[in-house]
Every structure is written in C-alpha cells, then in structure tokens.
Design a binder for these strands. Sequence first.
RNA 1: CGGGGUGUAGCUCAGCUUGGUAGAGCGCUUGGUUCGGGACCAAGAGGUCGCAAGUUCAAAUCUUGUCACCCCGACCA
Length: 607
Amino acid sequence: MRWSQTLIPTQKETPADAQIISHQLMIRAGLIRQLTAGAYDFLPLGWRALHKAMKIVREEMDAIGASEILLPALQPMELWQRSGRDVAYGENLVKLKDRHGRALVLGPTHEEVITELVQAYVSSYKQLPLSLYQIQTKFRDEFRPRFGLLRVREFLMKDAYSFHAVSESLDKTYDDFYKAYERIFTRCGIPFVVVEAESGPIGGSASHEFMAACTAGEDTILTSDKGNYAANVEKCETGPRAGDLSGAPVGELQKLHTPGLPGIDDVAKFLKTKPKNMLKTLVFSVRNGNPAARGAEDAAGGPPSGPRTENLSSPAYVVAVVRGDHDVNEAKLKQHASAHFRVGHLELIDSAEVRQNWAIGFVGPDEAARRADTVMLIDPDAAQGGFWVTGANEIDHHVKYFNWFRDCGDALANPAKVATADIRNAVDGDPSPRNDGGVLKASKGIEIGHVFKLGTKYSVAFDAHYLDDKGESHPFIMGCYGIGIGRILIAAVESMHDEKGIVWPAAIAPFQCVITPIKYDGEVKAAADALYSQLVAAGVDCILDDRDARPGFKFADADLIGFPVRVTIGDRGLKEGNVEIKKRTATDPEMVAMDGVVQRVMALLHT
RNA sequence: CGGGGUGUAGCUCAGCUUGGUAGAGCGCUUGGUUCGGGACCAAGAGGUCGCAAGUUCAAAUCUUGUCACCCCGACCA
C-alpha cells in the first residue's frame, strides 16, 4: 500500500469529546470517525486492524471445529416474543417496522435465530455436538453510548453457539472455547484476566468473562492475591465476615437536623464524620408476577428466579442495610431475600408510593424493624455495635449513636423478619471466598470475551429437540460464546501506547511495517520501491510513505499510528548501502545493510 | 429518563453580555524558499453561524420551539 493512494486522516489535535485515550488515539491516527452517537466509520487503517483481529478469531474458531455462518441482522419480532426477550431486552432492542407494518428488530445477539435454524435441520444425537459461529454487526440501542468504540450502538461481534446432547459434551466444548479465547487474546497481544461471571443453572463455574485489564474499563473486577479467584464485581462473593447485632451502644441516640441532605457523602461531610460510620438504608418494593421482566436475560443476565411468593404474608418491602461506604449488590440481595424470606421479584423504585410511605433519603433501620410489612437484610459490616449515623425516618433529619438492639428491639431476633447476609459489592481488601486467607484486590477491566453455558432455555422456548439413541426426544443443551471485535482494538490501544501515539502489537497492527523515505526521489525512491517489493514478497504487511512531506512530519505520523517497525531510507545511509530500522518501542534505530533488511524486519516482528 | 453543557470553515475554537459587511490557528489550493523529528513567505479557496418560527429597519448575537452531540447521574435516594 502506498500512503498517498489511501485515506489516512491523521490529526494533531485531540478531539474535544474523546474522553479515554484509546478513543483519542484512534481518531487522531485516522482509524475511525464518528458518524452519530455510538456508530463509527472504520477507515482503511481501522478496518485493517479489525480484519487482523477477525482473522485470528476465525483461525482459532476453526481450529476447535466451529463452522462459520452468517445470520441476518434483521429479525422478526416474533422470535423475540417466543423467548421472552422482547421484554427482557427492553429499550436496548432496536425495533422497527417494515412497510407492511410487520415488527422487526435489529439483532443485538442471535440465540433466537440460531436456535430456530438448528431446530429446523438437526434432529439426531448423531449430528451432535455442533458449534457454529459468525462475525457480524450487532445493534443495541444503548442508553448512553460513550468512550469511542467501548460502548456503541452498532458493533462487530463474534458470536458462537454450541449444541449438545449431554452436559459432559457441553463441558468439553466450553473448555475448548475457553482455551481458544486464551489463545486469541494472547495472539492479539492483549493482557487479560479471566474472571468468574456467574454460576449458572448447570452448576460449577458456568460462565467466565475475559477482561482486558485497563483503567478505562467500565467493569470492576476482584482478584484474590492467592491467584486462585477472580470475579466481576456483580458476581464476586466474599469470604465469611463476622456480624454481631448485639454490639453495645457507645452513646445516647441523638436526633440531628440535616436539611436537604439525603446523600451519604453530604451528611457525612455536614456531620464531620465518614461514610463508613453511617448506615445506608435502602428500601426495595416487592412485586409479584411479571416474570418476563426477569430471569429471561441473556448470558449477562441474573440468576434463575427464586420461588415466587404467592402467599399473602409476602412482605411489601425489603430493606437493605449496608455501611455508608459500601454498595448494595442487587443480585445478592435478591438471592438472600429469596432464600430467607421467599421474596420473589424486587424492584428498587422511586415511586410516589414508596416516597409516601418512607422518608426516602432519611430512612433508618428501626423503621424497618417496626413495620409489619417489611423484612430486613443487613450486611455483616453494618451489623456491628459502635458509632452509627443513620436516617431518623423524618425528612431532613438523621440520628447518631444508633444501636441495633436498643433502637430496633426484639424484631432483630426474628429470623423470619431480619437476617444478616452478604448483600454488598465486594471491595478491595475483602476476604477471598476461597477461604484460604486470600485478600481481594479491585481493578478495572474491559470485557472482551464471554463464555457461557446456556442450558436449555432457548431450545425449550423454540421446541428445538433431538432424538437420542433410544428414540427419546430432548431439548438441545446449549452454550454461547462472544467476543467484541472492536473491543480487541480498544484493549490493545488502551494497554499499549505512549505519549507519541499507539504502539500496536504486530499481530493486529494495520500494517506491520512502514517504509519512510526521507525524500521520495532519485536513488532513495528507487531503494524504497525495491525494499517495498522485497518486503511484500516476503509476506510482510507493508505501507510505503511516498508522500512529499518533511521527514519529521512523516515520523510523527508513523509514531502516532504506531506501526511496529519503521524502515527509514535516506541519502546518508544509502551512501554506505545502509538503511535504518527502528522498532516502535526502541529509542534508537539500527543501521542495516540493504540486503539484510527483510530478514531483520521479520526477526523484529517476531520478538 | 433527570440534570448540565455545546452547536460558527474539514479540525480546534473566538465573536454573542451591549443586534449593524463572518474571524483566528491548524488543515486545503497555487507559487517560491526549504527539506533527517509535525518548516517559512506570499497569494487564495472554503461558512444556509444546527434547524424553524418570532421580535427588529437590521439577528451568529435577543425570545420561543425543535434537532443533534457531549458530560454527570440514575444501585452512594
């Protein structure tokens, strides 16, 4: 490729609305351009890098026996109604109507379509297992697109689906995919960690996320310092923590005027204390019914719904109490509410109804203890004696020196009403759930891949069955496996760049090598052309900077884009029969004789 | 969806308070001088000031509406 013949709109200035470094650099290097919120043009260099990543993904998918297909992005709404995900996906589904008024969606993922396909053509255990994959554009009506390619409304994703007769077969395929993903991200040169996502209905560790470790990530991950546990914060459990509601008071209860301060941080500042000395009391209302709104999520969805309460004694509210500096984990809360109180569907809502019944922003645990229609879950770190500031159950008022038993009474001793349980997000420093003395460390990551054991959710919904060797009919057992192709680029740029620009890993660089003639003329031009031909003939992916521009200008562009190797040709070296070769990461170039260039470049690309 | 902000040349922005002929830098074109880490001089091209109504003799500027984009929040009530 000759530079002058393609489109590489580099720019010196950082775009005003790019927040994270990968977004800034990808725009400045001329890889992408935003068309509208959450939708990007891929320009020649960006598309080439994307292609490199796709090639690696394809090779590793093919290597584990998965077959590539292409499914439509345009799908009938009816498919989504059958799986219940028209509701579960909600506003994130891009919906449209054709001229006849038929409801359609632009697919955010393809479980429905693939299940419909396999249902039609696979009917015998002899055809199993079967793994199919595609690389295709997905659509999600993201509530808030942001951070360049990180959160977009239209994006390239590799999604794979496997079909099995028995769960042992799924286990094996799952493991194949897991290992293939490790190879893919390793080959792409991206530092990553694998975290436990969720224990699905099949049991064991049924879901893993592949996270690129970088500070711009939107996901929080926790890793045990013993190196044997890592999980997404949504899923991360903690080792046992002691809670003791019977701790002694340290002072008389005092009511304080805290006008217009419903927030933890504001109150703490106002009262000159710290959030960790406060109790955060959150009111959840309980809704029975409406099962479609839950449990029907996809790979990233919540745990299976607990026993739905039909009995009349079902509480109206669940109150969650955590320390002021902690956050409630809604999945854990649901799980424990279900286990302890047989509460079904929880909603955290800011409705007029809840506001009427509770002094939202100023709620204290004692109110929950008093009310007959309310149950309470307390995090162990909040279930302690000592100094507590919490709500006074009256607008614009808090109390200090709150004590559990003195101020809540014997209701605390009623296990049908109050329980202590791990209901908060894990934080840095928590004990590892492996119970081996490990301590959890928190960090940020970008989710670049996800493997998940689906089970029979979709095969049941679509009557996708096979006949076993006894002639009996069973739904397929399924797995699904996704990789965000664009996120591979983000992860690479986020983790590998310097003050001059991107530092591409050779495997996914738009070009492996740039040839920079100091002046594209005369002997230098002839030498550059010759070298270009030799390198291309040797299979090196090469771009020739044939622009009539000053050297400094070309060097700056080359560094900004981040080609792994630069070959510089000028009069000075050429007199001695030499050219300069410089790795992007090296500070100084090395002089190499013309006839050794190809060999040297190839050697550098493989180190 | 709530709050905030911004829409003026391809890009980054000034001008708006106090209405009166559309601006700068970068980029682009032409010519010249340059030429090993984002050159310099000169001459140019390029804008329905997001869109629509309104006020006014006159609107980028004031008013209203609307659209787009960005940020923060929405699980710290």
